[in-house]
Write a protein that binds this DNA or RNA. Structure first.
Length: 344
DNA sequence: TACGCGTGGTG
DNA sequence: TCACCAAGCGT
C-alpha cells in the first residue's frame, strides 16, 4: 500500500459519492444499526432490505421488541435464514431493556457480551453508531486486503480474522464507522469475488495484486465445504379440510420450526403410520419433487398427498389459513404453495 | 478449533 | 447443474 492516509481518503471519497440505498443508513439509532448488522450476517443487502423495513415497522425500538413474543418476532425473520440470529437478537434486546435501561451500551466490552454479538458485529455497531475505533472484519474485508497487500494468508484459517483486523487498524481513519462501511461496500460492489471491477476501483493505485496481476488468485481459501445428500419422503396429510403439521426438534437444523412430516425415502407406510399413530391413504406417486440446498446438506424431497383415515388427534391438524401463525422454512413454504395451487 | 447453521444469487 | 459466495456466531 503506497500511502495509508491517501488510501483511506480515496476510499472514503468514493464511498460518500457512491452510496447505495440502504434504509439503515438513514438513522443513527444504535438499535436499528445493530439490527441491520445482524440481518446482514452472511446475507446480501438486497435480500435484507424488505425484511429490515417490515421488522422496524413492527418493532421500531428496543422497548417494543423486548416486550414481543418470540414466535411473532421469528415470523418477521421467516425466509431470511440462520434463525438463531433472531432468537439471539431478541434475547439480547431483552437483556438491554432489563440491564441497560433500554439503551444500547456505548461500550464495546459490554456490547460484546450480548447474545449473537461477535467481533464483527461489535466493531460494526460500535464504530458506526458511536464511532469507536474498532475494526469490522467480514468476508469483504478479507478479500479487499488480500488483494491490496497481495496477501496469500489462508482466509479459512482460524487466525484470519485477527490477521486482517491488524491490517484494518493500521489504516483506520477517524471516521471509523464510515471507513468500515466503505471497505465492505467496496468488497460488495467493486472488489467482488469472481469478476472484480478493477477499472472502477477507487484504490486501484494502492493494490499490489492488481499491479502483480494476481487479483484472481486472491484471497486464498484452502478449506472446501463438503455437502451430504439426504433423500426424504414428505407427506401432506389431509383430514377433512385440515392439514397435518409438526414441529421440528428444539435443537439442530431449523430448530423448532414447523413442517410436513418427513421420513427417510425408504420408510415403509406401516412404519410411518406407526410413528404418526394414524391410518393413512397415500397416493402412489409424488405430486412434486424438490431439492433444497443448505450449507452442509442437500434435501431431495418427494412430496406425496395423503389422507388420514378414521379417528385422528385433531389438535395436530390446522386449517390452511392458519399457517400464518406458524414459522415454516422455505422448502415447506414451497410445498404449501404448490399444494394450494393444485387445489384450485 | 472445526463444524453446524438458511437462503438466494451467480458464472 | 452446481460449486461458490454473502455485512458471522455459538458451541
Amino acid at each position: 500500500m503506497l500511502n495509508k492516509q491517501q488510501f483511506s481518503q480515496h476510499l472514503l471519497d468514493w464511498f460518500y459519492k457512491n452510496k447505495r440505498e440502504m434504509p439503515w443508513r438513514e438513522t443513527k439509532d444504535p438499535y436499528k444499526i445493530w439490527l441491520s448488522e445482524v440481518m446482514l450476517q452472511q446475507t446480501q443487502v438486497n435480500t435484507v432490505k424488505p425484511y429490515y423495513l417490515k421488522f422496524t415497522e413492527r418493532f421500531p425500538d428496543i422497548r417494543t421488541l423486548a416486550s414481543a413474543e418470540i414466535d411473532e418476532v421469528t415470523k418477521y425473520w421467516e425466509g431470511l435464514g440462520y434463525y438463531s440470529r433472531v432468537r439471539n437478537f431478541h434475547s439480547a434486546v431483552k437483556e438491554v431493556q432489563e440491564s441497560y435501561n433500554g439503551v444500547v451500551p456505548n461500550n464495546p466490552e459490554d456490547f460484546l457480551k450480548l447474545k449473537g454479538v461477535g467481533p464483527y458485529t461489535q466493531g460494526a455497531v460500535m464504530s458506526i453508531a458511536f464511532n469507536h475505533q474498532l475494526p469490522a472484519v467480514d468476508g469483504n474485508v478479507y478479500r479487499v486486503f488480500s488483494r491490496l497487500d497481495n496477501d496469500d494468508f489462508d482466509i479459512s484459517s482460524s487466525s484470519a480474522r485477527r490477521h486482517f483486523e491488524d491490517k484494518v487498524m493500521d489504516v483506520i481513519p477517524k471516521a471509523a464507522g464510515d471507513f468500515n462501511e466503505a471497505l465492505m461496500e467496496l468488497g460488495a460492489t467493486v472488489c467482488t469475488p469472481k469478476s472484480p471491477l478493477c477499472m472502477f476501483c477507487p484504490v486501484q493505485q494502492h493494490c499490489e495484486s492488481y499491479e502483480a496481476g494476481t487479483v484472481q488468485l486472491r484471497p486464498v481459501k484452502l478449506k472446501k465445504i463438503k455437502k451430504k445428500a439426504e433423500h426424504w419422503k414428505v407427506l401432506v396429510i389431509m383430514h377433512g379440510d385440515k392439514i397435518y403439521i409438526e414441529q421440528r426438534p428444539s435443537t439442530g437444523l431449523l430448530q423448532s420450526m414447523w413442517q410436513f412430516p418427513m421420513f427417510n425415502i425408504d420408510t415403509h407406510q406401516d412404519t410411518i403410520e406407526e410413528q404418526l399413530n394414524m391410518s393413512l391413504y397415500v397416493e402412489a406417486d409424488p405430486f412434486m419433487s424438490l431439492k433444497h440446498q443448505f450449507t452442509h446438506v442437500t434435501w431431495d424431497m418427494e412430496v406425496y398427498r395423503a389422507v388420514a383415515l378414521g379417528r385422528v388427534d385433531k389438535a395436530r391438524f390446522i386449517d390452511i389459513e392458519e399457517k400464518e401463525r406458524f414459522n415454516f422454512p422455505v422448502p415447506m413454504t414451497k410445498i404449501f404453495k404448490k399444494y394450494i395451487d393444485e387445489l384450485k
